[in-house]
Amino acid sequence: MSSAFVGVIYFVYATTIRPQSSVEQKVATIPSLRGLKILLRPGIITFLESAIRNALYLWLVHGIVSMGSDYATAWGVFNTIRWGLVMVPVQALEATSLAFIGHAWGRWRREMGVESRKPKMSRRHLTGVVKPALTSLIIALIVEVPLCIFLAIFGCRPFASYLSGSATVASITAHMWQTIDWCYIFYATSTQLATILLATRPRWYLYQSLLSNIFYVLPWAIVCQVSNLNADDAWTYHSLVFGGSLVFSFFAISIVDALWAWKLLKGRMRLEVFHAS
């Protein structure tokens, strides 16, 4: 929230207060209701994607909480570790990749002519658009792979014990992490690859997310609800949901990205209407 507010404040400063090179440029960049409507279109898509994904997630978490206090606490500690050490850094790289890809995509559309709905992209331009995602992917792997190995071998149980103050919870958390830690390598990779779609074709991003959630997460979520799970065997199913979905998403986004690139290179992709404020 702090970073978001700082970003908004700087955006307002850069578009309304900071001296501009010309009056026309200043008028064109002042935030307006029309500009908000333009940004709202892709925002609705990401809102729908997030709502569907989190609805399934909360459904699963409800079942996790019912497994008992030790299991539920272990899940909370596991989330603290994966969010703080894996997901937040990966999402920071994701935000950076989105910004650079979005600018590269916008420059290409301007160069090709925004009225062209089926432009053919050269390999040089394609490389320029996807390069930020590949750079973020490499950085994520350099950081996350050694971290995952270290936690799996040495650090997870002591860290979980420090966070929870319980040897039982620490043991359960270590088992959770060591079971699906490798899946978060796929998460780091797929998150960066997904920025290519999110920054260029938000609808495609929604479609690949629905593919993962409807055809993988939803069936397993139903299985977890109808099965008579207990704390001893629940993680067998939950690991297939949470870890398996990360692996499934990696292959889904790789296939969709490849289709995205092929259609652009062949000039067969019909782009959205360009909206200007």
Rank of each mutant, 00 (worst) to 15 (best):
Y57D: 15
H62N: 14
W75A: 07
K131N: 06
M121E: 09
V129K: 01
W59K: 00
G106W: 03
K118I: 07
L40E: 14
L137Q: 05
M112P: 01
A140H: 02
G68P: 07
T80N: 09
V145D: 06
L58D: 09
A95Y: 12
A55G: 14
K131A: 14
T96L: 10
W105E: 05
I81P: 02
G43P: 12
L85Y: 08
T135E: 10
E49V: 10
S50D: 12
Y57W: 15
E94Q: 10
M112E: 11
V143F: 11
I44R: 02
W59E: 10
A92Q: 08
R107T: 05
T46F: 15
P42K: 00
H125Q: 14
N54W: 13
V90R: 00
L33M: 15
M121D: 05
R110S: 11
A74G: 14
A140D: 05
I38D: 14
H62F: 11
W75M: 06
A74K: 01
L56N: 07
L147Q: 00
G113Y: 02
R41W: 15
V77G: 05
L126M: 15
A95D: 13
L147F: 13
R123V: 13
V143C: 07
M112T: 10
S66I: 00
V143Y: 13
A51T: 15
T73F: 10
L40D: 11
K118R: 14
R109I: 12
G113S: 08
A55C: 12
T46H: 07
M87C: 03
V145R: 02
T96V: 13
W75P: 01
W75L: 01
A74Q: 04
I101R: 04
R53M: 12
N54M: 12
A55N: 02
G63V: 02
A55I: 14
M121I: 14
A92C: 13
T127Y: 09
R53P: 06
S50H: 04
W75K: 01
L126P: 01
E144V: 08
L33C: 11
R107Q: 12
S66G: 11
P89H: 01
R109S: 08
I44N: 01
L36D: 07
V114N: 03
R82C: 09
L147K: 01
E49H: 03
V61S: 04
S66E: 15
V86E: 08
V145K: 00
A72Y: 11
I142S: 04
S50L: 09
P146F: 04
M67V: 05
V61T: 11
D70L: 00
A55M: 06
R41T: 14
I101P: 06
G76E: 10
P42N: 06
H103C: 05
I64C: 04
H103L: 13
S136F: 04
V145T: 06
V145W: 05
I101F: 07
A74C: 04
A99L: 08
S97F: 07
M87F: 15
E144S: 03
R109F: 08
P89Y: 03
G63Y: 09
V129W: 03
T135M: 07
E49N: 12
F100Q: 09
H103E: 14
T46D: 12
K37G: 15
W105F: 10
I52D: 07
V114C: 04
M87T: 09
A72D: 11
G113W: 04
T127M: 10
A92Y: 02
I138P: 05
F78V: 04
P89N: 03
I81G: 05
T96W: 15
G35V: 10
L40V: 10
G76R: 02
I139L: 13
H103D: 11
